[in-house]
């Protein structure tokens, strides 16, 4: 068990390294110039050359990467081309916003997916299953920005019960924070629940068809006991393992949702970084998101392992 966790930790570093290399290459290969973005369209060639020399952009990529990596290892992610703000402290300040959004959305997604997926499997091919499966398909097809816009229209403009955006730190004003987070996390969570729901339904169906569930029935256990005592934990193990991946997908949505609801998180930083070709910002923000996703995967995987005695307890 501990060995498995250490193995995962040991894989963490090379994964992160590979991710940073790929990000670095992709960012530099896509068309568009940082200098033009920073200096405006009618910048003179001399000005552009000066900008590139100043920021070291005229050197070979490998040299640029090595320098960036060396600094990054010391916690220095450089400064923004655009406004000369140090990237690392800025990200650190924005991290709680993004984490809160992602965790709340993931919780909402699971709260929807777990019971509905279980019910759909339990009522396989019956009306409830058909309705829930249709709902999952619809949720999966809705773009999160569309849902977010709809929510704003309905709950901020038509019936003004929830704010359309803004952010207050939790420790400054918890109630206000939660109220402001409802619409963003709901838009993101609802859309993310689609895949999780289908995963839960599939794993639960598999469990319900297994021999030990038949044993439980043969013992005379009522359905509720069969579900709670015998099916749930066994379905949760594969669910968590697969579901952890969805946490990564969810970050794709974070970028868009933060922008719509004007949340000062890392996601909006990524967006600004892309638009401005602000490489230090983009690279730093993407990398921190990678760290968060990898950590989340590890935590969820560890939970799944702890639920499974085949991992925690040795063989015969």
């Amino acid at each position: 068990m501990l060995r498995l966790i250490f193995t995962r930790l040991a894989l963490f570093v090379p994964t992160l390294f590979a991710a940073s290399v790929i990000l670095f290459i992709v960012i530099n290969v896509v068309p568009g110039s940082a200098a033009r973005s920073a200096l405006g369209v009618d910048a003179t060639p001399q000005a552009i050359m000066r900008f590139e020399a100043l920021n070291g952009l005229d050197r070979p990529l490998a040299v640029q990467y090595t320098e960036w990596l060396g600094k990054a290892l010391r916690g220095d992610l450089g400064t923004s081309f655009q406004n000369r703000v140090a990237v690392a402290p800025d990200i650190l300040k924005r991290l709680p916003v993004t984490l809160e959004l992602a965790v709340l959305a993931f919780l909402i997604a699971n709260l929807i997916a777990l019971p509905l997926g279980a019910i759909a499997a339990f009522r396989h091919r019956k009306a409830a299953d058909v309705i829930i499966s249709a709902l999952a398909t619809i949720l999966g097809a809705i773009p999160n920005f569309w849902l977010a816009t709809l929510f704003v229209l309905l709950f901020s403009l038509t019936w003004p019960i929830l704010p359309a955006g803004g952010y207050t730190p939790f420790f400054e004003n918890p109630t206000r924070n939660i109220v402001q987070m409802i619409l963003p996390s709901l838009s993101l969570g609802l859309v993310s629940s689609s895949l999780l729901l289908r995963i839960m339904r599939t794993t639960m169906l598999e469990v319900l068809n297994s021999a030990y569930i038949r044993t439980a029935h043969a013992k005379g256990a009522p359905e509720s006991v069969v579900l709670r005592r015998h099916a749930l934990r066994n379905a949760l193990i594969p669910f968590f393992t697969v579901g952890a991946v969805e946490f990564g997908f969810l970050f794709g949505g974070v970028v868009v949702i933060e922008d719509i609801f004007r949340l000062p998180g890392i996601g909006s930083l990524v967006l600004v970084g892309i638009i401005n070709r602000d490489y230090p910002v983009l690279l730093g923000a993407s990398l921190v998101i990678t760290v968060v996703v990898l950590s989340a995967n590890m935590i969820v995987d560890t939970i799944a392992m702890m639920l499974d005695p085949r991992h925690t307890r040795g063989g015969a």
Binding site: A211, Y212, R214, T215, H230, L307, D308, P309, R310
Partner: peptide, 12 residues
């Protein structure tokens, strides 16, 4: 049943 391993709940 036939296959006792599969007939036993693996997590109980």
């Amino acid at each position: 049943p036939q296959d006792a391993l599969r007939a036993l709940n693996p997590t109980l």
